[in-house]
Simulated assay, not measured.
Amino acid sequence: MLGKLEQPEIEALLSRQITGRLGCHANGTTYIVPVNYVYKNGVIYAHSGPGKKIEMMRQNPEVCFEVDEIKNIFSWKSVIAWGKFEEITEIGEQEQTMQALIHRIMPLVEQPSGHPSHGITESEYDLGDKIDLIVYKIIIDKTTGRFEHN
């Protein structure tokens, strides 16, 4: 049976997942990339180093975000959200976002000291000067969700 997810089910799926796919478009090019995230109150929070997706979102902040939960080919749920990219520049909000991301990701990390590119280290000195984390949010303005189960 195919069906439509209701808003509470959409919220639950966005809250439950940790990795989604971010779609952005600029200068005639569409780019889709997986990102780790935290969802809260209609906002997706994430971080990145400098690169293609950040450049594209700065050019065109209108983005699309997709998450799914797949048990098998005939039992799955999927949500697509549309929203607007905003860089987080206020230090307090950056710190809160990074703390939320680290708390969400840590239970899935086997060796915490090995992920300085995600701001996860045993010591802040492990980060060095080379990492330029960009903390951002996607403010969602529209969602849709579908499911299939037998």
Rank of each mutant, 00 (worst) to 15 (best):
E6F: 14
Q7L: 15
E9Q: 15
L13W: 10
S15Q: 11
I18G: 01
G23P: 02
G23M: 02
H25L: 09
A26E: 00
A26H: 05
I32P: 08
V33G: 08
P34H: 02
V38I: 12
K40D: 08
N41F: 04
G42D: 05
G42A: 04
I44R: 01
I44V: 03
Y45I: 07
A46T: 06
A46R: 00
H47V: 02
P50S: 06
E55K: 06
M57H: 04
R58F: 04
E62A: 06
E62C: 03
V63A: 01
C64H: 10
F65N: 01
E66D: 09
D68Y: 12
D68I: 14
E69Y: 15
I70R: 11
I73K: 14
F74G: 09
S78E: 07
V79T: 10
I80E: 06
F85G: 00
E86N: 07
E87F: 11
E87D: 09
T89H: 09
T89W: 03
E90I: 08
E90R: 08
E90G: 04
G92D: 06
Q96F: 06
H103T: 14
H103Y: 07
M106F: 07
Q111L: 14
Q111K: 15
P116A: 03
S117W: 00
H118F: 13
D129W: 01
D129A: 06
K130D: 03
K137M: 10
I140W: 06
G145I: 08
R146E: 05
E148P: 09
E148H: 14
E148R: 15
H149F: 13
N150G: 04
